[in-house]
Write a protein that binds this DNA or RNA. Structure first.
Length: 818
RNA sequence: GCCGGAGUGGUGGAAUUGGUAGACACGUCGGAUUCAAAAUCCGAUGCCCUUAAAAGCGUGCCGGUUCGAGUCCGGCCUCCGGUACCA
């Protein structure tokens, strides 16, 4: 055995062995309990960054731990290969997106292999490969036929100078990131998938996700935003209706104006009539489509000149055009109650609109509407014959009255909007639709799939090359045969990442999207990924799973049983990203210390769910521990080793008992940390403590060596999921050449855990005054007596009376006195 | 703005169900070893007073519940993530 630890040498040797033995290939085996462990696959942006290393190490630790428990573990890896950065690289560096992507995949794959992750590489998939996206296209045509996919106009960010659509992140302070010219909104036809039809299921099924973090479920629940209310109709002067939704029908008599979106028919009629309004509206048309900008921008509006009739009072209500009302969301109109809604209150004050109080606090206390709206539920006033009612009776009574007059109905509303999947970009899955002048939108027939995205392209300017490529879009209508044009838009890349986890079960099947093996592997037992995906990716994947279930492709209803959301790796206080230029290259660390040190460091630095502020200084310590561990094993083996006999542990000295006790306490602690708590940092700390004790322990005879050997073997096998290469070697030395990959998780020996004395904390009035050693089974009375006899307890009991004594068994005793 | 988190020594973090605040590391300081250095080993290390012991203070801020609060409740502050076309 080498005296010194040479990381690179043993890591490369071990990795070669794993590859030769196909150590991590996982196949269907009904006789074995399966465990499907998955980390979110990467976008191949160039090189791995620390966020990847953290993500993939966490998942690999769990996968390797589950193998030690004897399960049939599948851990696959692939590439979320479509996306915007490839196009930016193409424009900047004159390289085709497919070449750029392939190059990055190569680079990142070799980095993943160098880190020793236990993947079944036979199942690798790449979403930009037609073998993958053809099934996405096929599935979309199924949705289209079921009317779950449809087309409607929606607004995008348009840069007139570059003649292109911009993503929200490409709009900076209302201007294009490339040319810095102001961005406008533009309405175009786009494809949507009816996620709102699944809103109830997506919300209600959250209750069954017992092993998801509460915070993620709360965020998804708020995002879906189911609310019960009433849709109220206001009649316009030309006898049309303006529909508004409210969760507060009890405030209906307080409506003093309506606000409609810039694109609402009323606004269009007003701009046609009045050039002043037209100027105002076009001046507001510059904002970006993001919710954040919409919520924080200055709320502006203008009176449209039109009135609507209040459904119950029949009084005329002025209609205002306002920039904060969204046409894409709900009906594009809201009823405004400035007395009882803060946003309405601010708008009303700004434009001197009337504020009419119709609810008062239940305790009749005064509320001053000069300082803000009164938004609590209370008792109705100024509301004709509804005055005096509380919220819930007013809700019912007003709903009934509106229903009777045909002016409103009870409705459930969702904050969730349908999923817009069209992107006006090149590097994505072509939408498999042909637009025919006589038949309309026609799905590409199954036998004509896939619609292949041409990869030999050149970027002239910034717009998608396939939009100016007749060889791509010119075709004939599958229904009537006349000349027609393909969709040149591509899918949102969230489409690919919504079903890849299922495709791993059969990634090379050319005959079907999913086959029956998916029902063995799915659902994923452990999904690991960044908290930044808590809403969008995870909600779309849950939705897609239900769509696939309803298409008969999969049996389960949810894709991920256990979810671990890792915190971000931050540098200088914010998310590491290429655009911010604050990435740390893990390759330098691997070159310097080896993969095991990088893995150990990233698991030790913080618990997985917490964000981790990057620091280079602690890496050295991780490497020091591995060298120390190596030396401990060398010293043990060179000092005579042991026979691995675990049978006889009678008549031990107290040092021997103490080490055995520590070993088995550590096994219990580490098992719990790995399995239930998933806090690998504390598991490592516990093993470090055990190793510190081993180092202090003097092995002088064969019994000593057996006990030290047991402690070392336990440490090594429990570290294997985190630092598998070094443990592979150390295990061989400690176990006469056997392979650690075949070893199972250690079992604690209850007999080793028995203690002769324990320490009890003694408090007086909640402050620790001393600690006493007692046998574990001591009566309450004798414990109290012992505590009261302590000098440092007596001191604090002078001139006071003992009121009571609280005893927490085996922990503490608190004497309350005054 | 809205939704979800986080805040503990010089630093990363620990304290699992309301019960010993600071485990385990990093760093720093002191010592051993060495011709010297690296590596390694031993010791000290929240603040304050102190020769020492003991006491006092201390988990972002203010207040509350409790015998007892880092942990629970109310109100703030700061930072991070998401906010539907970044992935």
């Amino acid at each position: 055995m080498e005296e010194k630890y040479h990381a690179h040498q043993i890591e490369l040797k071990t990795q070669k062995l794993w590859e030769e033995n196909q150590s991590f290939a996982a196949d269907y085996d009904a006789s074995k309990e399966k465990f499907y462990c998955l980390a979110m696959f990467p976008y191949p942006s160039g090189k791995l960054h620390m966020g990847h290393v953290r993500n993939y190490t966490i998942a690999d630790v769990i996968a390797r731990f589950q193998r030690k428990l004897g399960k049939n573990v599948l851990q696959p890896m692939g590439w979320d290969a479509f996306g915007l950065p490839a196009e930016n690289a193409a424009i900047q560096n004159k390289i085709a997106p497919s070449d750029w992507t392939a190059r990055n995949i190569n680079e990142m794959k070799s980095q993943l292999q160098r880190l020793g992750f236990s993947y079944d590489w036979r199942r690798e998939l790449t979403t930009s490969n037609p073998d993958y996206y053809r099934w996405e296209q096929w599935f979309f045509t199924r949705l289209f036929e079921k009317d779950l996919a449809y087309k409607k106009t929606a607004s995008v960010n348009w840069c007139e100078t570059d003649q292109t659509v911009l993503a929200n992140e490409q709009v900076i302070d209302g201007c294009c990131w490339r040319c810095n010219n102001p961005v406008q909104k533009r309405d175009i036809e786009q494809w949507f998938i009816r996620i709102t039809s699944y809103a109830d299921q997506l919300l209600d099924d959250l209750d069954h996700l017992d092993h998801w973090p509460e915070q993620v479920k709360t965020m998804q629940s708020n995002w879906i935003g189911r609310s019960k209310g009433i849709s109220v109709k206001f009649t316009t002067e030309d006898d049309h209706f303006i529909e508004t939704f409210t969760t507060r029908p009890d405030t209906l008599f307080g409506v003093t104006y309506l606000a409609v979106a810039l694109e609402h028919p009323i606004s269009i009629a007003a701009t046609d009539k009045n050039p002043e309004i037209a100027r105002f509206v076009s001046s507001l048309n510059k904002t970006n489509n993001s919710e954040e900008d919409l919520a924080t921008m200055e709320k502006l509006g203008i009176f449209s000149g039109f009135y609507a009739q209040h459904p119950l009072t029949q009084k005329p209500i002025p209609i205002w055009i306002a920039n904060f009302v969204l046409m894409d969301y709900g009906s594009g109109a809201v009823m405004s109650v400035p007395a009882h809604d803060q946003r309405d209150w601010e708008f009303a004050n700004k434009y001197s609109l009337p504020i009419k109080q119709v609810v008062e606090p239940n305790d009749n206390s005064l509320c001053d509407l000069k300082n803000g709206a009164f938004i609590d539920k209370g008792t109705l006033i100024n509301s004709e014959n509804f005055s005096g009612l509380n919220f819930s009776s007013a809700f019912e009574a007003i709903a009934e009255e509106l229903q009777k007059k045909n002016k409103g109905t009870k409705t459930t509303n969702y904050r969730l909007r349908d999923w817009g999947v069209s992107r006006q970009r090149y590097w994505g899955t072509p939408i498999p639709i042909i637009n025919c002048k006589s038949c309309g939108a026609v799905a590409v027939p199954e036998q004509d799939l896939p619609v292949i995205l041409p990869t030999e392209v050149e970027f002239k300017g910034v717009s998608s090359p396939i939009k100016s490529m007749p060889s791509f879009y010119e075709t004939t209508c599958p229904k009537c045969g006349i000349l027609a044009e393909r969709e040149t838009d591509t899918f949102d890349t969230f489409m690919e990442s919504s079903w890849y986890y299922a495709r791993y079960a059969c990634s090379s099947d050319k005959t079907a999207m999913l086959n029956s093996e998916v029902n063995y592997w799915a659902p994923v037992d452990q999904y690991v990924g960044g908290i930044e995906h808590a809403i969008l990716h995870l909600l779309y994947a849950r939705f897609f799973h239900k769509l696939m279930r309803d298409e008969g492709l999969i049996e389960s209803s949810e894709p991920f049983n256990n979810l671990l959301t890792q915190g971000m790796v931050l540098k200088d206080g914010s998310k590491m990203s290429k655009s911010k230029g604050n990435t740390v290259d893990p390759q330098e660390l691997i070159d310097r210390y080896g993969a095991d040190t990088v893995r150990l460091f990233s698991m030790f630095a913080a618990p997985p769910e917490q964000s981790l502020e990057w620091s280079d200084s602690a890496v050295d310590g991780a490497n020091r521990f591995l060298r120390r561990l190596w030396r401990l094993v060398v010293a043990h083996v060179e000092g005579g080793g042991d026979e691995g006999d675990l049978s006889n542990y009678d008549n031990l000295t107290s040092d021997q008992k103490n080490l055995r006790q520590k070993t088995h306490e550590t096994i219990i602690k580490v098992s719990d940390d790995y399995e239930r708590r998933q806090t690998f940092n504390t598991a490592i700390a516990a093993i470090m403590e055990l190793c510190n004790e081993i180092a202090r322990f003097k092995s002088e005879n064969s019994t000593d060596r057996r006990i030290a050997g047991e402690a070392l073997r336990s440490s090594v096998v429990m570290l294997e999921p985190i630092v598998p290469h070094i443990c592979h070697y150390l295990w061989k030395y400690l176990n006469f050449g056997s392979d650690i990959e075949e070893a199972s998780w250690p079992e604690p020996d209850k007999k080793a855990l028995e203690r002769e004395t324990i320490e009890i904390v003694v408090q007086v009035n909640g402050k620790v005054r001393t600690r006493i050693k007692t046998p574990p089974e001591i009566s309450k009375e004798s414990l109290e007596e012992m505590a009261l006899n302590e000098d440092n307890v007596q001191r604090f009991l002078e001139d006071v009376t003992i009121r009571k004594i609280i005893v927490v068994p085996k922990k503490l005793i608190n004497i309350v006195a005054n």
